[in-house]
Design a binder for these strands. Structure first.
Length: 909
RNA sequence: GGGCGCGUAGGUCAAGGGCAGAGCACCGUGCUGAUAACGCGGGGGCUGAUGGUUCGAAUCCAUCCGCGCCCA
């Protein structure tokens, strides 16, 4: 007889095959239709806040795996906190100004910086940034990220620009801002400052000269008369700007005899210099580099001292080991010069000609001056050797001419003003850095960082709000001016700085406080974009945005220790004396399957789009937390395959749970103490899982969250409990305690499971939630996080012992299966011989055979432990497939067991 | 070149001086009432390399190699 119509198989429309790429857009639409983000926010209104402040991605292209990873991690945190009942609004933002966009827009226009109408250009750049902010917005939404997408913050919006200007103004007025010389890349043909991105490197032939700097004060080192430091340079024209000579503190330096003269060079370079010059040089004395510190030399070209200083950037592989230092003409020279208080001299105008400062070469192009300088050095006997060299040199990306380092006045934020550096170093310690190594990184950076250069000679950004008196040159910004300007910017955007004359912005009849003049000009440099994002905490974390300062969490890639974490810390500590964050969480970088970074040239780039198309955003979400994201995160076909596998296990578990709840209703719930012991065990395991999962969410250890959930589904449910439960679910009477108790547990497991996975597997949690066939909330995201309950440790320990025995049983069963004695485990009869304790222990389990999924278990006391497996002699019940001695004894139902006969009679007649 | 990290099975992760482990993949197998599902069993490792400390090292120390981020 066919009994297939007489039992309760799982029934659900929740599909086994996820088909994520098709289904996700439907779920997104559902969320949009019910406005899920607002409903979550409304649900938690008035509760404790948890504010994750979004670091703005740069709006100049499509998202990549790194940006996707970052947004997904943020989304997981916000969803988790929201489910836990926190009021956790998420306001995404975009970084819209800056060089890369400027660069790309110039390219599109086919023009360069000084060929464009500024306002027209800025309009184009603005459109460009908005376009990509919108593209990225859609891409982020596609990932299932919830947030206030209708009201993001953009650094180019007038209100944000106003906040940038106000923040700068506050810092200026309180004394943090000053102006001084700093070398920058400069193209003397285009007469413009260049950014690093506008530099191309080519081979260039340059002079290579060794020059003698006469010692005028050896600080009592007794080096002797007619002594010189020998330096090497490939840019003779920078010699007039020389103010120092670097030596390595740990190198040995030799005083060598060259005729009547003595020369100082590094010992490491001695042989090489002897070879180059072809001279017979003799060693006279030896000094450690650090002993030479402070010796004064004379610049061989002009009347200026040159001081010997120590720096460990000095190379022992080229030159003389004594390095010509012109702080006005090089980045390294500049920083070393700052540290040692060397004057920064840059006697070169914007055309690349020497200024009045160098009377001998006034008006001469620096590159043309090289030859003249070499000749003059030779004439005056300061040239030791002269040759030529082919080396890599920076060129202008536009005109392809070699560029120079030229010092111009730049605006700075002083890090050592008002104890700012100490404040930051103190406050850093109060922040929770996750992982904890982050504190080392940011601390060492803060303790070493130089003043922050805030000005850029660019077009796409917010102008530095400073006026200059045309008469006396004084820089001017008062509270009154700042307030007026902020009002204008709020109304018209930062373009107003260009649109209006200085006098239209300044208060009526404003006069220079120093000289009384009424003529002013505006600063035309813009602010470093890092300053813009660095004040996001001021602009965004406001009451009017429903947010609050400081934020609970910043969550970005580990590169932001140098970037946003630091710039935000500076502005925040300068203005409020406190960091804008309580916790800083960092993640690593996405690399390929072999651990190498992704790049076009390596050809190993994988895009979020490919993953979404082939597998779905859900897989991307799961991948994001599948590995330990605090280190580098690898991605490869194989890894994605693993992720998909993990996903399938969860999905199938959910499907089985749903399928067995098709006829369940909440009022059927069986109270805990009426459940069978094995059901209580399942509940205790669930409690344990909920607790561990929650702990790991709290620690942001999302890969462990998944591991816990996965192991629960796989080891506790799939391998044991659900397999065992099939008999009770399928074959017992619809309203039996066996079935109802099982369903009670399954219902509890299902709803808890869905909540636990919802922050990560949002699509699947929602999709399956909608298949729950009885009364529920509108969305899984409106549920409450399960309460943490202490699990019953005694019960769990008792069952751990059971599982130890079960493991042996399973192995024995497999042996008999191999011997072809049994197939299905239900064909088996177990005999377990054991000591009294174990005997009593086993005896205490209800229907032990069903727990092992065998037909018969016989337990006996014995002095040895042994498990025997044989084929049962009973007959198989055709309905429940268990072998019973009673099968065949009933005439009406000769192929059924007693229980099944009862069920058929009660449920199907 | 410097700073901060990382390196354990094919991949993802555990073990932090005392027998190197888990689930996945793989192989074998059962079931055909979770079926592109589910169950059971199995093989797989010179713990990046080389030295050292120790009775004993994946673990502590040193050097090196490879990879990532930041800086020069």
């Amino acid at each position: 007889m066919d009994y297939s119509k007489t039992f309760y198989l799982p029934k659900t429309d929740f599909p086994m095959k996820a088909n994520l790429n098709q289904r996700e857009p439907e779920i997104l639409k559902f969320w949009e239709d019910i406005n899920i983000y607002k409903k979550i926010i409304d649900k938690n209104k008035g509760k404790e806040k948890y504010i994750l402040h979004d670091g703005p991605p740069y709006a100049n292209g499509h998202i990549h795996l790194g940006t996707a990873l970052n947004k997904i991690l943020k989304d997981i945190v916000v969803k988790y906190k929201s489910l836990c009942g926190f009021y956790s609004p998420y306001k995404p933002g975009w970084d819209c100004h800056g060089m890369p966009i400027e660069h790309q827009v110039f390219k599109e226009m086919g023009k360069k910086k000084n060929e464009v109408d500024i306002l027209q250009f800025r309009k184009k750049a603005s459109d460009f940034a908005k376009k990509f902010a919108n593209i990225q917005k859609e891409e982020f939404k596609r990932l299932g990220v919830f947030g206030d997408w209708e009201n993001p913050y953009l650094t180019l919006s007038p209100s944000y620009e106003e906040d940038i200007i106000r923040a700068f103004g506050i810092l200026y007025i309180s004394g943090y801002i000053y102006k001084t010389y700093k070398p920058i890349y400069w193209c003397i043909t285009c007469e413009t400052a260049l950014a690093e991105a506008e530099i191309e490197y080519y081979e260039k032939k340059s002079p290579s000269i060794f020059v003698k700097f006469r010692i005028i004060d050896d600080k009592g080192k007794n080096i002797g008369e007619d002594s010189y430091f020998l330096i090497w340079t490939t840019t003779p024209w920078t010699l007039p700007g020389n103010t120092g000579i670097m030596v390595h503190p740990d190198f040995d330096y030799l005083v060598i005899i060259d005729g009547n003269e003595k020369l100082i060079i590094a010992e490491k370079r001695f042989e090489e210099i002897k070879k180059i010059s072809g001279k017979d040089l003799k060693i006279y004395k030896k000094y450690k580099g650090k002993e030479l510190y402070g010796i004064l030399c004379k610049n061989p070209l002009i009347e200026r001292e040159s001081k010997v200083i120590c720096a460990d950037i000095v190379s022992g592989d080229e030159g003389t080991g004594c390095v010509h230092t012109a702080p006005g003409h090089g980045e390294e020279d500049y920083y070393v010069g700052l540290k040692n208080n060397l004057p920064i001299i840059s006697p070169v105008n914007e055309k690349g000609e020497f200024t009045d400062e160098i009377s001998d070469f006034k008006g001469i192009n620096v590159f043309k001056a090289d030859k003249l300088i070499i000749n003059k050095l030779k004439e005056n006997n300061f040239l030791f050797y002269s040759g030529e060299i082919l080396h890599s040199y920076p060129f202008c990306w536009r005109c392809k001419n070699p560029v120079i380092y030229r010092s111009t006045k730049q605006w700075f934020l002083k890090v050592d003003y008002n104890n700012l550096r100490e404040t930051m170093l103190d406050e850093i310690k109060k922040v929770n850095w996750v992982p904890s190594e982050g504190i080392n990184r940011i601390s060492s950076m803060i303790s070493l960082r130089p003043d922050w250069c805030l000005s850029r000679q660019r077009l796409w950004g917010v102008f530095i709000p400073i006026f200059y008196c045309e008469n006396c040159g004084k820089d001017i910004l008062t509270q009154e001016i700042l307030d007026r300007l902020c009002e204008l910017v709020r109304k018209y955007g930062s373009d107003v700085w260009i649109e209006k004359e200085a006098n239209e912005i300044l208060p009526v009849d404003f006069k220079c406080p120093d000289c009384g003049s009424n003529k002013f000009r505006k600063e035309m440099d813009i602010l470093d974009v890092w300053f813009e994002s660095g004040v996001s905490h001021i602009s965004v974390l406001k009451e009017e945005n429903d947010l609050s300062w400081p934020s609970d969490l910043y969550l970005e890639g580990s590169d932001q220790h140098r970037g946003w974490f630091q710039t935000s810390l500076i502005t925040s500590c300068a203005i409020f004396k406190k960091p804008p964050y309580k916790t800083v969480l960092t993640h690593g970088f996405v690399v390929d399957g072999t651990g190498r970074k992704m790049s076009k040239s390596l050809g190993n780039v994988i895009t979020p789009d490919e993953i979404i198309k082939n597998y779905g955003a859900e897989i991307l979400r799961l991948w994001s937390i599948f590995e330990n994201y605090q280190e580098d995160i690898r991605i490869s076909e194989e890894i994605i395959k693993n992720v998909v596998n993990g996903y399938r296990v969860i999905r199938n578990t959910i499907r089985f749970l749903l399928g067995n709840l098709y006829d369940y209703k909440r009022e059927f719930e069986i109270p805990y103490d009426k459940l069978f012991e094995v059901d209580r065990w399942a509940i205790e395991k669930l409690k344990l899982t909920v607790r561990k999962v929650t702990e790991n969410y709290e620690k942001f250890a999302f890969n462990k969250v998944f591991e816990e959930i996965y192991n629960f589904c796989n080891i506790n449910l799939s391998s044991f409990y659900l397999d065992y439960l099939k008999d009770r679910l399928y074959t017992y009477s619809k309203n039996s305690l066996e079935r109802k108790a099982a369903q009670t547990v399954l219902n509890k497991v299902l709803i808890n499971l869905l909540i636990l996975i919802a922050p990560i597997l949002s699509f699947t949690a929602e999709e399956s939630y909608q298949f729950i066939p009885f009364e529920k909330k509108e969305s899984i995201f409106l549920e409450d996080w399960p309460k943490i309950e202490q699990e019953d440790k005694d019960l769990l320990e008792r069952w751990d012992k059971f599982f130890e025995i079960r493991k042996i049983v399973l192995k024995k069963l497999e042996e008999k299966r191999e011997e072809k004695i049994i197939g299905s485990s239900l064909e088996a009869k177990l005999t377990i011989l054991s000591d009294k304790d174990t005997y009593e222990f086993l005896k205490s389990f209800y229907k032990l055979n069903t727990l092992f999924i065998v037909s018969e278990v016989e337990i006996k006391e014995s002095d040895k432990f042994e498990i025997k497996v044989e084929k049962t002699k009973n007959k198989k019940c055709q309905r429940c497939w268990i072998y019973f001695p009673q099968v065949g004894k009933n005439e009406s139902f000769p192929d059924l067991c007693e229980k099944c006969i009862d069920v058929i009679k009660s449920d199907f007649s």
